[in-house]
């Protein structure tokens, strides 16, 4: 069985920054900027041909690093990665023929060229004949709603229009494997929907097309992906279908509370039966939203009394079906922002 993407114990370490200027650093800075960073730590995944595979993880989890290695832009420190059966480190050419990559917030292209010219230029690096390329571009411009802007200079495009252009750049070379790194970042609801639908349809309606998608939007991952890997600090914590992932925590109970804004949450984590929880503050209403993953319903009473003993009011309490976000909270120990 061959996979579209396979990694074996893939590890990538970034060397720390050299001291250029000697000055005192805060502990935080020292943590962040000095010393080597292990961006990927023994990652082994298999993505089947025809699969829409999602990577879910917080900032700095290593998602982009993984995509860069698979896109032959970065070498692994150890371990191996295969794309379309070829080793990324030893045999990049046949991989490059078959892949493309689009990242959210990309600023590629030349401002002087029109949207159409830019996409055409990138297609030339893949040897797509001009006539084929131009026909595809026109079609995709219609699909993504960029037709009106086809002859606008790239520097005149809005962020969202630019991102649509980038998506067209990704599809115009007719790749077999497409890497999408937060492709809907910063897009409005409608534009994001168009992109999701197109990607889904592109994978489903053709044979042998594979997508690796990273995202911060849980609903996006849930709705689109055949399988999802949850990654944190360079490690894969779980990898399964969205349904199976949710089933994993079905034995646990999810409670959502809306309460007056609270600060002190330390006592929740030490409570018996609380597996994990997350807190978000709504500044507008001055309330806190709490999500608890509990082993059973036992601790609910204790949680409520702890909140009310601080003089805070509980506005709503709800037991709910687990979402992907709950899976994430349960595994990573913090929510997504």
């Amino acid at each position: 069985m061959s996979y579209a993407v396979e990694t074996r114990d893939l590890t990538r370490v970034f060397a720390g920054k050299k001291h250029r200027f000697r000055r005192k650093r805060t502990a935080d800075e020292a943590d962040e900027h000095l010393g080597p960073v292990t961006a990927l730590d023994g990652v082994s995944i298999q993505i089947r041909e025809g699969e829409l595979f999602g990577m879910l993880g917080p900032n700095g989890a290593g998602k982009t690093t993984l995509i860069k290695i698979l896109a032959t832009l970065l070498l692994p420190t150890s371990g191996q990665a295969f794309v379309a059966g070829h080793d990324v480190a030893k045999d990049p050419f046949p991989i490059r023929q078959r892949i493309n990559m689009v990242s959210g917030g990309e600023t590629s292209g030349y401002g002087l060229l029109t949207a159409r010219e830019n996409v055409w230029m990138f297609s030339q690096f893949y040897g797509v004949p001009s006539r084929v390329s131009k026909a595809r571009i026109d079609e995709l411009m219609h699909v993504f709603g960029l037709w009106d802007k086809r002859d606008a200079k790239v520097r005149m495009l809005s962020t969202g229009q630019r991102q649509k252009m980038n998506m067209i750049r990704g599809f115009v070379t007719d790749p077999d494997i497409l890497f999408l790194d937060e492709p809907t970042l910063g897009l409005d609801v409608n534009a994001a929907r168009i992109i999701r639908e197109y990607v889904l349809n592109w994978v489903r309606s053709q044979k042998g097309k594979t997508v690796l998608l990273t995202t911060h939007y849980m609903a996006e991952a849930d709705q689109m992906c055949d399988r999802i890997a949850i990654i944190d600090k360079g490690k894969i914590l779980a990898c399964d279908t969205p349904e199976a992932l949710k089933r994993m925590i079905r034995t646990e109970t999810t409670f959502r509370l809306e309460v007056d804004a609270i600060r002190d949450t330390a006592s929740f984590s030490s409570m018996q039966g609380v597996k994990n929880f997350s807190l978000t503050n709504d500044i507008g209403t001055n309330r806190s939203h709490l999500t608890f993953i509990l082993e059973d319903e036992g601790p609910v009473a204790e949680i409520l009394s702890l909140i009310t003993s601080q003089g805070k009011k509980v506005h709503s309490l709800q037991k709910s079906e687990p979402t992907l976000e709950d899976v994430f909270i349960s595994m990573v120990g913090r929510g997504f922002e």
Binding site: A71, T72, L73, R96, M101, F125, Y126, G127
Partner: peptide, 9 residues
């Protein structure tokens, strides 16, 4: 742009 160039065949 460079990463897109280097990624191309």
């Amino acid at each position: 742009n460079l990463q897109l160039y280097m990624m191309a065949p």
